[in-house]
Nucleic acid binder design. Structure first.
Length: 429
RNA sequence: UCCUCGAUAGCUCAAUGGUAGAGCAACCGGCUGUUAACCGGUAGGUUGUAGGUUCGAGUCCUACUCGAGGAGCCA
């Protein structure tokens, strides 16, 4: 019978057994302090030479860092322990003696840590990030499921680009070309015409040679799409969505955020309404702040940082120039130069975590846009069918999971927000 | 693709052009309560690769390889 470390406080005074790994040991002549972890938590096991049998004492001294062990002992209350309990060890069984462990207690460089990502995952902070990621994903899905959305999985192999401009990973598909998806959105538009409210959640691939703290070549994106929602309904949905998921993480991951030393104030600020500014006003604000930008330019990373710093909470920027956005964005009927789209910029310099828009629902205009962007018509025939058979206004958005996790956890780089990051120069381990 | 920076012990880093060093990890010893434990000792090196300058190169020069940060693009 194995007890989880996290459950130890409810077993005080009992003789129990735990199974896990020894992540550190501190020893003196007559004492071993075994630092143990099992994935659910950590606890200190104390072996006293005068009280332990010889076998237990020597096994405790022989276990190397990260050896897997089964430890038996009595759970004791102890005020010196951070968790309030420790284990008075009566038996130590070494399941597998670990070789010299590469990751030491001192600091390491990022290159070494990424080379040893498979081992780095065992450290306290990385475990906390993975738990926050899992909770955040669950919060996303729960929110959408409860709001009447149906999960619809989009294909990973696709015959064509969703957005023409970005580069795709090309694969051989039985002699012809196929690409790894860069968005499930077009397929969600089809699904929304069937089920009304839908979303997909899956991996996304971009072959862009981006080398920044906000980019991965493989990342996860959640993409809701809603029939009959206009661009404004869409922003309302995003705001409720963000509030729900960040709120859930604040509630359920307090311990992990503490381990990550996350300042909670910027996260708690999401409870008040998010500012909504037009692209045109945003450009004016940037000029006031001394930024170099002209109307019609897309924002750079620094522009996004400056804009989000003005408000200290997520901020919507809407009505971008149609030119800088994808072909499927619906133009504003009052000003065709503008698109009915929005981005959500996270505070603290985390940049764009949501890209959103109302979709082009008019067949002829969509045809014209596809031609304008120099895209082939044939692969898009099925997409055009959606406009031929009962087209409706619809809109949706995509949120990058790693960017959201980076912001929530207060991490500098998205590569720590995914278990095994894929970047331009790294696809191992 | 472009710009900047970097590569020295297993790891993190030092070393004015003049004998390659420290801390951590490992190993041995010491310590009755440690919290990245502490104290003493041992071992550990073709300084990323290939050339060049020099009496002498970890250090200066050239090329290459690998990586990091940023730009563009995006989530």
């Amino acid at each position: 019978m194995t007890t989880l470390i996290k459950d130890l406080p409810s077993h005080i005074g009992e003789e129990i057994s735990i199974a896990g790994w020894m992540y550190n040991r501190r020893s003196s002549k007559k004492l071993h302090f075994l630092q143990l972890r099992d994935g659910s938590g950590t606890v200190q096991g104390v072996v006293v030479k005068s009280e332990a049998n010889e076998e237990t004492w020597s096994a405790a001294g022989e276990a190397t860092m990260e050896s897997s062990v089964r430890i038996g002992g009595e759970v004791r209350k102890d005020e010196r322990s951070p968790t309030g309990v420790e284990l008075a060890v009566t038996s130590v069984e070494i399941l597998a003696l670990a070789q010299e462990y590469p990751i030491s207690k001192k600091e390491h460089g990022i290159d070494f840590l990424l080379d040893n990502r498979h081992l780095w995952l065992r450290s306290r902070k990385q475990c906390a990030v993975l738990r926050v990621r899992a909770r955040l994903i669950k919060a996303c899905r729960d929110f959408l499921d409860d709001a009447g959305f149906t999960l619809v999985d989009a294909p990973i192999f696709t015959p064509n680009a969703c957005e023409g401009t970005t580069s795709l990973f090309e694969t051989d598909y039985f002699g012809s070309k196929a690409y790894l998806t860069q968005s499930g959105q077009l397929y969600m538009e089809a699904a929304a015409m069937a089920l009304g409210r839908v979303y997909c959640f899956g991996p996304t691939f971009r072959a862009e040679k981006s080398k920044t703290r906000r980019h991965l070549t493989e990342f996860w994106m959640i993409e809701p799409e809603v029939a009959f929602n206009d661009w404004k309904d869409n922003m309302d949905l995003q705001e409720r969505f963000m509030r729900a998921i960040v709120g859930r993480v604040l509630e359920e991951c307090a311990e992990d955020l503490k381990v990550l030393e996350r300042d909670l104030a910027p996260l708690e600020a999401i409870s008040s309404p998010f500012p909504r500014i037009t692209y045109t006003d945003a450009v004016a604000t940037l000029k006031e702040k001394g930024q170099e930008i002209e109307w019609g330019d897309d924002f750079g990373a620094e522009h996004e940082t400056v804009l989000s710093e003005v408000h200290g909470k997520p901020v919507f920027v809407h009505h971008y120039p149609a030119k800088v956005k994808a072909f499927y964005m619906k133009p504003d009927p009052d000003n065709e130069e503008l698109a009915l789209c929005n981005d959500l910029l996270a505070p603290e310099g985390y940049g764009e975590i949501i890209g959103a828009g109302q979709r082009m629902d008019d067949l002829d205009m969509l045809l014209a846009k596809i031609e304008e962007h120099g895209l082939p018509i044939e692969p898009f025939q099925w997409f055009l069918d959606l406009r031929r058979y009962g087209t409706v206004p619809h809109s949706g958005f995509g949120m990058g999971i790693e960017r959201a996790v980076a912001w929530v956890c207060g991490l500098k780089h998205v590569r720590e927000c995914i278990p095994f990051p894929r970047t331009m120069y790294r696809n191992t381990p």
